[in-house]
Design a protein around this nucleic acid. Structure first.
Length: 335
DNA sequence: CATCAGGGCCCTG
DNA sequence: CAGGGCCCTGAT
């Protein structure tokens, strides 16, 4: 488990209280592992979310509305059910409320059919046990594409500590502190707000050369020229090309977005250096292995589910690490 | 004190 | 298509 301290919301940020509440019930396709889907122990802690067993809170901007979300497990792996509660400042118009359950179902990939994947996992000696422990885990993202893009950008060429620092600085400067359901979380900003910020102001937030990227991406979103909901229908190749066309998005960020945001479980085109070391150890018991080899082997073993299988292996490792420290893994997590 | 790589990406030759 | 440069930070 990454032990960086999630900083408390800062007094510099504006505060807002969300008092309107709407409730929905979502029924995922079984098997569905609630905790393993909402909580990714390999991720760094973000002040925009909070996680407890059986419950998850986060803020997000959806169709220009600031929302506080709570997902609560009200079923089990084989009979899944999720209570979704949504808080907002004012009553939400139908244009936001109606598509919301679908949106959340998409973000958590609730309707994914895992039968073929299950067959592949159980047919492989390495993943059989992992499937037993984590069956029903999905690729998921609690955030919009824009929000995940901001996270991807602060991940670039940075260690965990620095990523956390950059994100917190940005959230404090441009986000809000959001109170709902008895807790306070940070929220991201509207793209337009960041697009108008001066370069020097961003530099002061210690984001370095990423200032240019953050600003250009925000401009593109503020202009409304990017419609991520349309991109969901694209083929893997077309989607990847669209993502790569975004300024500041290269192979590593495209990989994150393809998998976490768009749930493309087939696509493993790139494995970043840090993950490469971890897979080298887990899959080959070696210090380092060629990226090409890891990718080809994964495709051979898990076919169209190579990315999802690697994700299961990775998250299972971090889940076990959070229960009982795995020394070699501690050494690879560079704070 | 200096130097350097780090969970990339863009741009140039 | 290889490699330099880029902001910062902590490690050496």
């Amino acid at each position: 488990m990454i032990m960086a301290i999630p900083e408390k919301p800062d007094s510099r940020a504006r505060r807002v209280k969300l008092t309107c509440r709407h409730d929905f019930r979502l029924i995922p396709k079984p098997p569905f592992a609630f905790d393993a889907t909402v909580n990714k122990p390999s991720h760094f802690p973000a002040p925009t979310e909070e996680c407890r067993p059986g419950c998850f809170w986060n803020t997000t901007l959806f169709r220009d509305h600031l929302l506080g979300l709570r997902l609560r497990n009200s079923g089990d792996t084989d009979h899944p059910s999720v209570q979704l509660s949504v808080w907002s400042e004012a009553p939400l118009p139908a244009s936001v409320l109606d598509p919301l359950p679908q949106e959340i179902a998409f973000r958590y990939n609730l309707q994914s059919d895992l039968r073929e994947f299950r067959r592949l996992m159980r047919g492989d000696a390495l993943t059989r046990g992992i499937w037993r422990r984590r069956r029903g885990l999905r690729s998921s993202c609690a955030y919009s594409l824009y929000e995940l893009l901001m996270i991807s950008i602060v991940l670039q060429n940075a260690t965990v500590r620095r990523t956390v620092q950059m994100l917190n600085n940005l959230l404090n400067a441009f986000g809000q502190v959001v109170a709902f359901d008895g807790r306070e979380l940070c929220s991201f900003w509207q793209p337009g707000l960041l697009s108008r910020a001066r370069d020097s102001r961003l530099r002061d937030l210690r984001v370095g050369y990423r200032a240019r990227t953050l600003s250009r991406v925000s401009k593109a979103f503020a202009r409304g020229r990017i419609d991520p909901e349309e991109w969901r229908a694209l083929s893997n190749t077309d989607l990847k090309n669209q993502l790569l066309s975004i300024y500041g998005v290269g192979p590593a960020s495209a990989g994150i977005l393809m998998f976490e945001c768009f749930h493309r479980h087939e696509v493993v085109d790139h494995i970043p250096p840090w993950e490469r070391k971890i897979f080298a150890k887990v899959l080959y018991n070696k210090e380092s292995v060629e990226e090409e080899r890891i990718i080809n082997d994964a495709r051979g073993r898990w076919g169209d589910y190579a990315a999802l299988a690697l994700h299961y292996i990775f998250e299972d490792l971090f889940w076990r690490h959070s229960k009982r420290t795995i020394p070699w893994l501690s050494n690879l997590i560079r704070l």
